[in-house]
Simulated assay, not measured.
Amino acid sequence: MCHGGWCFDQLAEQLRRHHHRVLPLTLTGIAERGHLRHLLVNLDTHIQDLTAVLEAENIRDAVLVGHSYGGMVITGAADRAPDRVDSLVYVDAMVPGHGDSCFDLVSDRERQWYLDVVDTGDAVRPLPFFDPRSTPHPLASLLQPLKLTTDLAHIRRRTYVYAAGWETPSPFTTVYQRLRGETGWATHAVDGGHNLMRDAPDALLRILLDLADPELLRDNTSSNIR
């Protein structure tokens, strides 16, 4: 929320050094694309942002990495472009099912934040500690339920990376604890705050590199990284 693809710059550069192709995405109506917020921007818009890149770049076997709200987007994209997506990585993120909205899946603390809208009433204000480049986030994208047409059984690998260093209770603890016991998920707890790209970039890089290397991958794994 509120951030552009530039929040992945450090991670993207490190992955490219290991010869991976990386395409950080800024969603419509946010950051350098904030001038488009006057359009009707919702969750469907953001899913289309991602599927359009997959199609335009002719990408197959993509590993989609979604942080926080981005979990909504990568789930929807995997449903709509099943022939282009291999794996999903949720970085301290929502893991929605059919009919879930972002608003449904967070705690009361986050809902109070979502309702602190700008004067026009259509976007959520960035929190004070966010990157200074952050901009208001389209409110409709947080309220729109996700529509899924499949059970995502075609996704070969699913990974959840939990930030264990929140200063306040994490809204993602419940989903992390649930996924630890589910078949088909690899889970990792990383000692860092919600923005793991900034707080624990090396740990997150190791997880992604292991995922990309079939010889290092272990299904149904769980780890704690300090």
Rank of each mutant, 00 (worst) to 15 (best):
L196W: 08
W6Q: 10
T135I: 05
M72T: 00
L40R: 12
R133V: 07
T28E: 05
F8W: 15
G192I: 03
P136R: 10
L54N: 06
N58Q: 14
H67K: 01
R80S: 08
N58I: 11
P128N: 12
E55T: 07
I30P: 00
P24Q: 09
L211P: 11
E13R: 14
A77F: 04
T28Q: 05
A12W: 07
V53P: 00
M94Q: 10
H98Y: 02
V65L: 12
R226D: 15
V106S: 03
G184F: 08
V22Q: 05
L23W: 12
L209S: 07
R84G: 03
I47A: 00
D9W: 10
D213S: 12
L25A: 03
Q144W: 00
V190Q: 05
L211S: 12
H67G: 01
L54C: 09
T150Q: 01
A123N: 01
V161S: 05
Q48P: 00
L23M: 10
V190S: 04
E57D: 09
C102M: 13
R80K: 10
F8I: 01
T51H: 02
R226Q: 15
L39G: 01
T45S: 13
L209E: 10
L152V: 09
V85I: 10
G165D: 08
I155L: 08
P132M: 10
P201F: 11
G184T: 06
R157P: 04
R206A: 14
D122V: 09
A12P: 07
V117D: 03
S223D: 06
D199T: 13
P145T: 02
E167N: 14
L27D: 00
Q10F: 14
L50W: 00
I47M: 02
T75H: 03
V65F: 08
D210Y: 02
D202L: 14
G193T: 11
Q144S: 00
R156Q: 15
V89S: 07
I47D: 00
Q10T: 14
R21V: 13
T173V: 11
I30G: 00
S68N: 12
P82M: 03
R109P: 01
H154A: 10
L148P: 01
D151Q: 03
P214L: 11
K147T: 12
T75R: 02
I207K: 06
V89C: 10
Y176S: 05
L127F: 12
V91Y: 02
R218D: 08
L23N: 09
P169I: 07
T120K: 09
I59P: 01
L216W: 08
R111N: 07
P201H: 07
L217Y: 15
V161N: 05
N42C: 02
E55A: 11
H38M: 11
P169H: 12
R16H: 06
G34W: 03
E13M: 07
V41F: 03
P214Q: 08
Q112N: 15
L204E: 06
A212D: 13
R21H: 13
D219E: 15
W166H: 15
G5R: 04
L142Q: 06
L205W: 07
E215T: 15
D61K: 11
T26M: 03
G66V: 04
